[in-house]
């Protein structure tokens, strides 16, 4: 169970200012059903530039409801310049603190207030570049692509760790995967290889390269290749099919197989035929 302060519990059980203001001067909506919390904030100005009334509607957990209630209490009676300075920490402090995992509820309050004030002042929401992929946290395809490329991220978990993207409802996981596939698919051979590989990684990469790059070429000529062993930088192989009896097989081995493995695995590999 969450360790909520008495003030959080009190504002959850008896929230202040729940409801809608018809003809509100400012309205700010944040969150969505998918994310598990959403808040709509309304305020009405008096004749002297102060917030006369504020109301909210919230879908969410106890701390989301308490944070919304706290927010309305904090802004009523303030000028917009004063209200604008309210941060999520102020909301948390008003409630006597929130559990760390619940701080996003107070952030939601701050964001709703920013939006409502911006709306009142007739400002348009800040422009975002690209298309929003993660709607829960408002992360765009461009941001995801850039981060995936820079940090060579390969899992959705990693993307969530860096950007929060995909950490909410999970609806965008397929899209994030597509972006990663796009990034990695496009530059599979350009990506710098990890400097140091374990033997297992090296063997796997050799096998992959044989399978994907080398075997198809040899097979076109009725040949084939089989990995026998890897000892340090020595790669021992068997040549099969027409390759086995081909007089040019040593050339193939050195100028094609070895060159390809050096290019795609590590540049110190020496390919030898199995003579056992």
């Amino acid at each position: 169970m969450w360790d909520y302060t008495d003030k959080v519990k009190e504002h959850f059980l008896n929230p202040r200012n729940v409801g809608v203001i018809e003809n509100a001067d400012g309205v700010g909506e944040v969150g969505s059903l998918a994310c598990g919390d959403a808040l709509t904030l309304y305020f009405k100005m008096d004749g002297e530039g102060r917030i006369a009334d504020a109301k909210f509607q919230t879908f969410g957990c106890a701390s989301a409801i308490a944070s919304s209630s706290a927010l309305t209490e904090l802004i009523i009676g303030k000028t917009l310049d004063e209200a604008e300075k309210i941060t999520n920490e102020d909301i948390a402090a008003f409630l006597g603190d929130l559990p760390k995992e619940k701080m996003h509820c107070s952030v939601m309050g701050q964001e709703a207030l920013e939006k409502a004030i911006a709306q009142y002042r007739g400002e348009t929401a800040r422009e975002v570049e690209g298309n929003i992929i993660c709607e829960c946290f408002g992360i765009t395809d461009q941001e995801i692509e850039k981060t995936v490329r820079e940090h060579r991220l390969t899992s959705i978990e990693d993307v969530t760790g860096y950007l929060k993207a995909g950490g909410g409802c999970g609806n965008c996981h397929d899209k994030i995967q597509q972006i990663m596939d796009g990034v990695h698919g496009a530059c599979v051979t350009i990506l710098p290889r990890p400097k140091k590989m374990t033997n297992i990684q090296k063997i796997r990469l050799i096998e992959e390269t044989l399978e994907r790059e080398i075997r198809p070429t040899l097979r076109k000529d009725g040949g084939d290749i089989e990995l026998v062993d890897v000892e340090g930088s020595r790669v021992v192989v068997n040549l099969r099919g027409t390759c086995a009896s081909c007089s040019k097989s040593q050339v193939t081995l050195k100028s094609y197989v070895e060159a390809k493995l050096r290019e795609l695995v590590t540049d110190d590999l020496v390919v030898e035929e199995n003579h056992l």
Binding site: W2, L13, G60, C61, A62, A64
Partner: peptide, 14 residues
């Protein structure tokens, strides 16, 4: 639908 589980549980807890 349209309500959040933790809030329900805490009200039930009351």
């Amino acid at each position: 639908e349209y309500v959040e589980g933790e809030a329900i549980l805490l009200m039930m807890n009351e």
